[in-house]
């Protein structure tokens, strides 16, 4: 039987008719969510600065606390709701990185503590570490060479 339309034509039909994201709503939600999470981070920073901690300690403690908040909200089944509302506003802050580690760990607990929790923990966050660390090594190498040359 002869084909009615080509694949290309069909894809065009689909693209034309497919319901699009509510971009304005999504951008607004991302802005609010991301902004709010970063404000919390700022408050944590200010609190620890007041204790007289040095810059690096403040930065480390802030990231530990933000990671904890992300993990905790994931554990009590709330972070996915924040993500559904805020999209990138929830996934780009470090709390989202934490969510991406805790959520598969929880999900795959039933497959055991080694191959489930242990192995699947980095299902989504693994690539972030792989590319983050690898690019830092490349960056470090370039910096090292640049230092020798200059």
């Amino acid at each position: 039987m002869k084909k009615q339309i080509s694949k290309h034509e069909y894809q065009k039909m689909v693209d034309k008719k497919a319901p699009g994201s509510h971009i304005v709503r999504n951008l607004f939600a991302a802005f609010i969510t991301g902004g709010a999470i970063c404000s919390v981070g700022q408050i944590v920073m200010l609190v620890f600065k007041n204790f007289g901690a040095d810059k690096e300690t403040v930065a480390s403690v802030t990231s530990i606390i933000m990671v904890f908040i992300g993990a905790f909200l994931t554990g009590i089944n709330i972070y996915d709701e924040i993500g559904k509302f805020g999209g990138a506003g929830a996934s780009i802050p470090i709390t989202g990185f934490s969510n991406s580690i805790v959520s598969p760990a929880m999900e795959f607990k039933k497959e055991g503590y080694v191959m489930g929790v242990g192995a699947k923990m980095f299902l989504i966050a693994g690539p972030v570490l792989v590319y983050g660390i690898f690019s830092s090594v490349v960056a470090g190498l370039l910096y090292f060479i640049w230092k020798q040359v200059m």
Binding site: A18, P19, G20, S21, H22, N26, T74, N77, Y79, D80, E81, I82, G83, K84, G86, G87, A90, S91, G96, N99, S100, V102, S103, P104, M106, E107, F108, L123, I124
Partner: peptide, 17 residues
């Protein structure tokens, strides 16, 4: 969801389609 997409608690948005 766990076989085809993301863990349940992962905070991703669903697309309109």
């Amino acid at each position: 969801e766990r076989q085809f997409r993301y863990p349940l608690e992962f905070g991703a948005q669903r697309t309109p389609t």
